[in-house]
Structures are given as structure tokens and as C-alpha cells.
Design a protein around this nucleic acid. Structure first.
Length: 834
RNA sequence: GCGAGAGUGGCGGAACUGGGAGACGCGCUGGACUUAGGAUCCAGUGGGGCAACCCGUGGGGGUUCAACUCCCCCCUCUCGCACCA
């Protein structure tokens, strides 16, 4: 393959290097707070320094840079920073595999990726670059951890957690996908272990409420967050155990109205009350056997839908307080200890799971809602209706019955209304090395004590053996573990777990506001100026991970009085994946396109142009090598045109012309200004950069047509002026997409100042005006002709002209005109009848 | 199962608020320039008839002068959640 000596490619390598240096040398995109100008904080999710950028990075950073440069041209003071999400497991795995220290590996990767990003020519303020593994960064996270600890927002507990056997660490609920580790795809098990948690559940209601106040977010992301938080409203109440005064089981239900249909009750197998309910040795043995059987199921098996529900009937019975009747009590695997109270009332008539279980175990089913006409009792009825078989609730609709049932429970002192959330506290302990140390010590005298503020950061020691054998590697580092108690000064041991790397990414956007600030996490005035992020851009895979954590963390900081921001990200753009040959790019599939190779062969501008042109940003992008050729061809065409007409363009007189403009000139100028309007709308309205680019392509096509056809009825001065206006407009509109070639061509036109210091073009309303307009003429809804009319023509005139049209008349032969619909400026539809 | 989104040429994708379906690009066909073309330029390109015309936006119904767009039913695909009481 001898592509390198292809002829007539514009010298992209040379001009891209030149402009990247020019922008950096002049620190063109360096910003400071400037209250006089409107600010725009444009942020793309920062990368993990894996070593090399991939096409997904090219896409997201091309999108971000387009917006940033566009906003610059619109007069905004644009903050556009970049940094590195630098803690994480791959660095440790590299250490295990190659014996290189995680820090060395990470900083080496950062160096490589930084130079790759530089070659893309993105308008970052590199002065603000940060890496989260820097103690100067994570010390503030440790300080906030201590503040959270003091407020009970960070706490330690022993519990059953998600455990990834391959990563040898705890995972948060959000980091388990369909029973597998989000990072390594291993099957996740459960483990009873002590770990640190952030009390995100304390913010469940607020996180949910604000989902309705983020209009700039995609609906699907908000829906995922709402579902993840999983609010459900209902009631909690007691079921008394028969023959055991004072012993009751508390259950949660969202359907208190159905309580009269309760024909049994169920406890989760691990429910702590089971031990007090079971006294007989034989039954105890049966319970143990059942629990073992349930525990043997892996997470994956538990997730498999519609598998039979296993249950064990206990000898104890409970009372339905609504009917006073005795009902049986079961242990069953379909009731989860982690939700509600771990116990339920079972209403098979109105709950499908209970219906399935009741059918399998031949338990009675009572309908408490009137079924619709023709309903067959083959499944539970969960719809609306009027209460039946329900004592004092009979005749009420479901909603009212719910309320009345709760009132009754409250009056009888049996229970009350209750809201439950599916969201669990965020488990942040990681039994790994390459993360921020948790700043807690264990003192024999004082117990669990946070490190003193003035001794922060607790620096991650460098001399550590990483074996990959499991257990926190920090536990092996004696000089780290053995420390002094901040309270009594006596010997104490340090916590050896590190924090989940999602903690670092929960506030990096705040640190960018004042990345070198030493007085705290961020400088309050800088954060007040820049926050919140106006446009955040990143992959959909973070819909409930990073994006939920960052929202939570921001609210915590707000409640500590550190920031006024309620939410970190005003608007979110979730870009789709880059796929090739129908599959996500991956080494194992062998369909990877290497950005370096692409940039070497075609240049960064072509890579960016294709990424933005091939699909709207929220959709998956189907990579296509031929499409890249097309993008490259377009830029070459632009390059050739400007150079071929350089003299004429430079000489063009920009002053007003003496004579009036020609018809052709006016028509072409309308095309220019229509393009400005379309491109601006596409960017502003819904980020449809693909159609914005196609509009510029149309302008370039029109430019070629104009160039060939002109001088018919047009003076040389008018032609030169229009060519120049068209070319300048084209360059300005294309600038944010392909900054290097446009900056270069801008210079060819004789400009000395950077393109990105020029204002974005504004469509001239006068240029958009038309004198005539083409009207489509339909007969009975089918297009039969077109007529050209004066824009000011009245409906009557338009209709007459349409009816008189020679292509229309034959269709009216032998038929009567029943009606004529005239849509001004667009269309006439002649409706006929026989 | 629940929730969200999507189905348009050979392909990626356009179509504002119900008003010309297929913009733009890729590919393909023919031509020009050429020693050559995988460079460049010109013309064409939904299907059928090769004319007048007819058909066509997953399928079926409906509303309307007019439906890719609105309503009802169904099919397929993608993503998320998944025994959450």
C-alpha cells in the first residue's frame, strides 16, 4: 500500500503542526474569569490514561471542540479543560504483568495520550491540566471524606456486598451490569465484608426531583436515573404472629388497598426474625437447607427471568389485620432482604409474582378489584377498578382505597405510609493499591479516627509489592499502616482500602475552575464564576454511574457550603459509540481504526470532519473508510478552490458596489446567508452537526457553480465580492469543525488575526428575502406542476395561476373543482370530484 | 416482564410546526482529461414501465384536501432495569 505518495493532497501535516504550535505559543485558549463576558463551560468526560486514544475519544473530543470553538466565536468566555482520570485497576494489572510501577505506567500513558490529543488540535486550556493520582488533587477529596465522615455521610459497615473475584475488590451496585463486573466482565459474587459507604440514599429524593429540572439532559438518561433511584410509595404495617404475643412481622407494600386479598405472607430467606419464629430442631434444619440452596444460586441465575419461585412453608402463622384471618407464612427466594423490610404480604389476585407462587403451592387466590368484562383468571390483575371482597374498602377505586387503608392502619396503630427507594448507598472501598487512600486510622484507645486536616494528604506510598494475590496491597506497607493516632498520639493503624476511582471523577469539573489552588478543593470565586458546566459531553455508559455520583457529590459539597451549584451539569450530550462492520470497535474483533494512523494518512481535520459528518452525535457512528476518503476529498476541494482564486479573492473590493446587484448575484448571496442560518440553527437547536456540515458542502457546490457560470450579466467587481463573501463565510462556518485548514485558508485571504477571534457570521435578513417563490401545485394530493409567483401575490392570484397552468389543466378535464387549498408560499392543492 | 428509543434507496443519513420523500456524503453507471486512474471534472443514480404514468418511508387500519410526521392495532431491532412487593 503506497498511499503516502498519493498526489495532490493538501499539506495537512505541515499546516496542522503549524497551527497547533501557534495556538499553544499564543496560549490562545487560556482563560481567566471575566465577569464582563458571558461564560461557557464546555466539558468532555476526561479519559482514563490507558495509553492510546481510540476512535471514541476522537469523536467525543471533536464534538466538544466544535462547541467550544463555536462558543468562542459567539463571544463567550469559554472554559475548555482536559485532564486524566488517572487512578484505576489497569495500572495495577500492568504492574503485575510487566513489573512497572503504576505511577510510572500512568504518567507514561498520559504523556502519550497528551501528545495524541495535541495532534487533534483541540482548543484546550492546557494550563489547567490535572491528573487525579496527584496528591495535590486527592488531598481535597480526603478532606471532604473527613467532613462527610463527621456528618455521617461516609460510614463503615459490615454487609453483603458485590465482590469481583477477578478484580479482587468490592463493587458498587452501579458497577454491576447484569451480574457482571463493569470493568472486567467477570461474574460478580456476594461477600460479607466491612467497607466504606457514601450515604447517597440520603439524597435519593433530591436526585430524583432534579431529574425533572434538567431540560438539557437526554430523556433516556433521566429515565435510567429515575429507574435506578426507583422510588415507590406505599405502606408498612405489622402482621402479628399467631400465638406469640408481641411478635410481629413488618411488611412493605405499594398496594395496601389489596390487603383483604392477602392469602399468605413471605419472608426473605435471610430474614433475621426467622430464628425467633423457628423453635423446632427439625424445622430449623429445613430452614438451613433451604437457605443454603438459595445461597448457592449465583447472581446470574438469580437474574434469569421466569424461573420457578422456591419456597418453604413455616409452621408459624400470621394474622391478616384487615380480615382477622390466619394465613400461612413462607420463606421464598423471590423476596429480597435488601428491599423494603424483607417481608411481604402476598396478594396473588393482584400481583403476578404472588400469583405464580400461589399457583405452584396451591394457595388460595382472592380478587379484590373488579375485573373488566371478559377477563379470564389466568394471571394476576394489576389494573385499575373498583374494590370488591374488601370490607370497608368495597366500592372505592384503587387510589382512594389505598389512602383509606393507610388511614385505617394509622388509626389502629398498625402501620403508616412509607416511601422506599431502590437506590443503595455507594460502596466506595476498594481493596486495591492504585487509588486515593481513605484518611482514617484505627486506634486501640480512640477507635476509628479521621486523620488531622493539617496532616493531609495521606500520600499513597510508592514502595509497594503488587502481587495480585488479593487483599489490600497497602496492608503490606508497614510504614504506611503504622501511624500515630490523631487524637491521643498513640500507635494506630491506617485504613488500607482506597477509594473508588469514581470519587475522583465526581468533582474534577470543580477542580478545573482553579486547578492550582492550594487553599482548598477549589477557589470559591472561580467556581462561582464557571459552575455549573454548561455543556457536558460523554458516553451513554455513564448514565447511572459517573453521572449519578457527580450529581450526589455536588449536592454534598453544596450542603457543606462550598458551592452554590445544585447540579454539576446543566446540559448533557450523550454521544453514541463508534462501530465498524456492525460491532463496537475492539481488538478482539479486529475492527479497530487507529486514530494515529488516520491522522497520519489524512490529517486531524479529516478525522474530525468525518466523525462529525457521518451521524448525528447521539447516534452510533458507523465507521467507513470510504466515507473518510469522502471527507478528505471535500477538504482538498475547498483547499484547491481557495488557492486557485487566491488573487481574485484577495483583490475583491469589500466596499458597497456602484450599480445594483444582478439577479444571479442576489440569488447566490441568498444561498450564502441561507447557509449561515441553517448551520447556526443545526448547531444551536439539536447539535445536528452532520446536517450543518452538509449545508456547508452545499454552499461549496453552489460556489463552484457560481464560479463557472458567473460574469453573465455581472460585473467583475460583483463577482469578486460575492466569491469573497462566500469563501469567508464557508471558512468561518467550517472553522469549529476543521480548525487547521480553515485557519490556514483564512490567512490565504489576507487575514492576520486568528479565525477564532472573529465573530460567528450572522445571516443578513435582507439577503434572505425573495421576490419570487416556487409553489407546488397538486391535484387531489398528487404533485402535477410548479408555478413561480411573486412573494407578495395574494391567495386568489396564486390559485388562478395554478388552475391555469398547462400541466394542471388536463387533470381537471371532465372533473369539477370541489375545493382549492392554498398554503401561502408553499403549495396549492386542487381537490376535484367527478 | 417493565421502561426508553428506533425501523426511510445498495450504504451512512436528510425532511422545520401535517405540505415537493430520499438533502449531503459514500457507492455505482456513463462521459471528459489521461501512458495510467484508486487524482480531477461533467452527467446520471428509489423501484416498475423506460413514454404518459404507476408504486414507494417495517405491516395493517384510521383522521385529513394532504401523513415519514397525528391516532389505534401488530411485527422487528437496540439500549437500560430486572422477583424492588
Amino acid at each position: 500500500m503506497a498511499q503516502d505518495d498519493r498526489p495532490e493532497r493538501y499539506p495537512f501535516a505541515e499546516i496542522e503542526g503549524k497551527w497547533q504550535r501557534a495556538w499553544e505559543d499564543s496560549r490562545q485558549f487560556h482563560v481567566t474569569e471575566d465577569p464582563a463576558r458571558p461564560k461557557f463551560y464546555c466539558l468532555e468526560m476526561f479519559p482514563y490514561p490507558s495509553g492510546r486514544i481510540h476512535m471514541g475519544h476522537v469523536r467525543v473530543y471533536a464534538i466538544g471542540d466544535l462547541l467550544a470553538r463555536y462558543k468562542w466565536m459567539r463571544g463567550f468566555n469559554v472554559l475548555h479543560p482536559m485532564g486524566w482520570d488517572a487512578f484505576g485497576l489497569p495500572a495495577e494489572n500492568a504492574a503485575i504483568d510487566n513489573g512497572v510501577h503504576p505511577a510510572v505506567w500512568t504518567y507514561e500513558n498520559i504523556k502519550n495520550m497528551r501528545s495524541q490529543l495535541r495532534r487533534m488540535g483541540i482548543s484546550y486550556d492546557w494550563d489547567r491540566e490535572l491528573a487525579t493520582c496527584d496528591p495535590a488533587y486527592y488531598r481535597w477529596e480526603q478532606l471532604v471524606f473527613i467532613r462527610m465522615f463527621e456528618r455521617g455521610l461516609a460510614y463503615k459497615k459490615r454487609s453483603s456486598v458485590n465482590w469481583c473475584p477477578s478484580c479482587q475488590t468490592i463493587l458498587a451496585n452501579e458497577q454491576v451490569e447484569a451480574g457482571r463486573c463493569w470493568r472486567c466482565d467477570s461474574e460478580v459474587t456476594t461477600k460479607e465484608i466491612e467497607g466504606w459507604f457514601f450515604k447517597i440514599t440520603a439524597y435519593a429524593e433530591e436526585l430524583l426531583e432534579w431529574c425533572d429540572r434538567l431540560p438539557g439532559w437526554p430523556e433516556r438518561v433521566l429515565t435510567m436515573q429515575r429507574n435506578w433511584i426507583g422510588k415507590s410509595e406505599g405502606a408498612e404495617f405489622d402482621l402479628h404472629v399467631v400465638g406469640r404475643p408481641g411478635v410481629a412481622i413488618r411488611i412493605f407494600t405499594t398496594r395496601p388497598d389489596t390487603a383483604f386479598g392477602m392469602t399468605y405472607a413471605v419472608l426473605a430467606p435471610e430474614h433475621p426474625q426467622v430464628d425467633t419464629l423457628v423453635t423446632d430442631a427439625a424445622e430449623r434444619a429445613r430452614v438451613e437447607a433451604f437457605r443454603k440452596e438459595v445461597a448457592r444460586e449465583s447472581e446470574i441465575e438469580r437474574l434469569a427471568a421466569d424461573r420457578p419461585k422456591r419456597g418453604l412453608r413455616l409452621s408459624a402463622r400470621v394474622l391478616n389485620p384487615f380480615t382477622g384471618g390466619e394465613i400461612p407464612l413462607f420463606l421464598a427466594d423471590y423476596v429480597l432482604m435488601g428491599y423494603g423490610t424483607g417481608a411481604i404480604m402476598a396478594v396473588p389476585g393482584e400481583d403476578q409474582r404472588d400469583w405464580d407462587f400461589a399457583t405452584q403451592h396451591r394457595l388460595p387466590i382472592i380478587a379484590t378489584v373488579k375485573r373488566p368484562e371478559g377477563w379470564e383468571e389466568t394471571q394476576a390483575y394489576t389494573g385499575d377498578g373498583v374494590k370488591i371482597n374488601s370490607g370497608f374498602l368495597d366500592g372505592l377505586p384503587v387510589d382512594e382505597a389505598k389512602r383509606k387503608a393507610i388511614d385505617w392502619l394509622v388509626a389502629k396503630k398498625l402501620g403508616q405510609s412509607k416511601v422506599n427507594y431502590r437506590l443503595r448507598d455507594w460502596g466506595i472501598s476498594r481493596q486495591r493499591y492504585w487509588g486515593a487512600p481513605i484518611p482514617i486510622l484505627y486506634c486501640p484507645a480512640d477507635g476509628m479516627v479521621p486523620e488531622r486536616d493539617d496532616r493531609l494528604p495521606v500520600v499513597l506510598p510508592e514502595d509497594v509489592q503488587i502481587s495480585g494475590k488479593g487483599g489490600s496491597p497497602l496492608a503490606e506497607v508497614a510504614h504506611f499502616v503504622n501511624a500515630r493516632c490523631p487524637k491521643c498520639g498513640g500507635p494506630a493503624k491506617r485504613e488500607t482500602d482506597t477509594m473508588d476511582t469514581f470519587v475522583e471523577s465526581s468533582w474534577y469539573f470543580l477542580r478545573y475552575c482553579s486547578p492550582r489552588y492550594e487553599g482548598g478543593m477549589f477557589e470559591p470565586k472561580a467556581a462561582a464564576y464557571w459552575m455549573p458546566v454548561d455543556q457536558y459531553i460523554g458516553g451513554i455508559e455513564h448514565a447511572v454511574l459517573h453521572l449519578l455520583y457527580a450529581r450526589f457529590y455536588t449536592k454534598v459539597l453544596r450542603d457543606m457550603g462550598m458551592t452554590a451549584a445544585d447540579e454539576p451539569f446543566l446540559a448533557l450530550l450523550s454521544q453514541g459509540m463508534v462501530i465498524k462492520d456492525g460491532a463496537k470497535m475492539s481488538k478482539s474483533k479486529g475492527n479497530v481504526v487507529d486514530p494515529d494512523e488516520l491522522i497520519r494518512r489524512y490529517g486531524a481535520d479529516t478525522a474530525r470532519l468525518f466523525s462529525l459528518f457521518a451521524a448525528p452525535p447521539e447516534k452510533d457512528l458507523d465507521w467507513n473508510d470510504r466515507g473518510v476518503e469522502g471527507a478528505s476529498r471535500f477538504l482538498n476541494r475547498v483547499w484547491r478552490f481557495v488557492h486557485a482564486h487566491a488573487d481574485e479573492l484577495r483583490a475583491a473590493d469589500k466596499t458597497a458596489q456602484a450599480g445594483g446587484p444582478s439577479d444571479a448575484g442576489r440569488a447566490f448571496r441568498r444561498v450564502i446567508h441561507e447557509t449561515i442560518r441553517r448551520v447556526t440553527d443545526d448547531i444551536e437547536k439539536d447539535f445536528h452537526f452532520n446536517t450543518a456540515i452538509s449545508a456547508v458542502m452545499e454552499l461549496v457546490n453552489a460556489l463552484h457553480d457560481f464560479e463557472r457560470a458567473s460574469l453573465d450579466g455581472m460585473g467583475r467587481a460583483e463577482r469578486g465580492r460575492l466569491l469573497r463573501e462566500a469563501v469567508e463565510t464557508m471558512i468561518l462556518l467550517l472553522g469549529p469543525v476543521t480548525p487547521h485548514i480553515t485557519e490556514e485558508l483564512w490567512g490565504v485571504l489576507g487575514h492576520r488575526e486568528s479565525l477564532f477571534r472573529r465573530p460567528w457570521p450572522v445571516a443578513d435578513p435582507a439577503a434572505l428575502e425573495r421576490e419570487e417563490v416556487v409553489i407546488v401545485v397538486q391535484v387531489d394530493g398528487k404533485v402535477r406542476s410548479r408555478v413561480t409567483v411573486d412573494v407578495a401575490a395574494g391567495e386568489r392570484d396564486v390559485q388562478d395561476k395554478a388552475l391555469a397552468d398547462e400541466k394542471v389543466r388536463p387533470w381537471l378535464d371532465g372533473r369539477q373543482v370541489a375545493k382549492v387549498v392554498v398554503v401561502p408560499g408553499r403549495l396549492v392543492n386542487v381537490v376535484t370530484r367527478a
